[in-house]
Design a protein around this nucleic acid. Structure first.
Lengths: 130, 130
DNA sequence: CCTTGACCTTCCAGTTAGTGGAAGGTCCAT
DNA sequence: ATGGACCTTCCACTAACTGGAAGGTCAAGG
């Protein structure tokens, strides 16, 4: 399979696939014409990567997950540890965003949004506490 | 005031302050020794930037907000528009993260996390649907 | 007067995870 | 043989800093 085919099949853009090869996540073979020749196992890996990335795992995490996936002697605890760390990170991000959302939501609500200059959003950012 | 003083007073790191000057967000004067000489208005701007960034506004947004802040002829609707867009963006991010959190949370819960290799997390990423 | 340490300066490189685009080679169908 | 759809590499760019090196400045203590 050529890169366009695996891109379509895996949902990972061709450019991204080349990038993944660059950083050593996959090692497709090459045909005589220089084109990358993907095997089923490459496609499989790319789909794995696509799903991992969709869950927000970093490339570094994906690399470890892929290694664990191919390691028959793995312990599920290793996988779970990575996932748990990521889950904690997600929770932290959600908490941060929720706090921003709360503050900003209040400010937006309190701003008239008309053609006058008075604006509680700007006042708050300038710390002109009312 | 030197950069260290404003860094302390504004909470914005010195490196970041230099960066903000680089990209034209602030224009501190210079002393004879070449040191940046910050006025109160610079400090004020930096604090404004610090608070804007803490609410997750992009640098581009911050630039516009700062301009609006200094524009007496502004309409609060312009400010509100920027803030509303950002709020929507935050909501989108929270929604994305919440979905990841839900999926990943299930997977983590279902993984034994012991020394055996069987792992629903990896199975799911590999799309070996059970 | 000299030194020491805490400042300050600029500049370069690296971070994350790709994306866009240019220049050029290949393949297949008409 | 020519056109279009592929493919290749390489370089630059994104966001918002951060780290570090090399070197100048300033104030205090000996």
């Amino acid at each position: 399979m050529n890169i366009g085919d695996v891109a379509k099949a895996s949902g990972v853009p061709a450019k991204t696939i080349r990038y993944y090869e660059d950083i050593g996540l996959i090692r497709p073979q090459r045909g005589e014409n220089g084109y990358r020749a993907f095997r089923q196992s490459d496609l499989h890996k790319l789909a794995f990567l696509g799903r991992s990335r969709a869950l927000g795992f970093s490339i570094a995490d994906c690399r470890m997950l892929l290694e664990l996936y191919e390691d028959d002697g793995r312990s599920s605890s290793e996988v779970k540890h990575i996932a748990q760390q990521h889950l904690d990170e997600i929770d932290r991000k959600i908490a941060d965003l929720s706090e921003m959302r709360a503050t900003l939501g209040e400010l937006v609500k309190s701003c008239a949004g008309d053609n006058r200059p008075d604006c509680p959003i700007l006042s708050s950012l300038a710390q002109e506490r009312s």
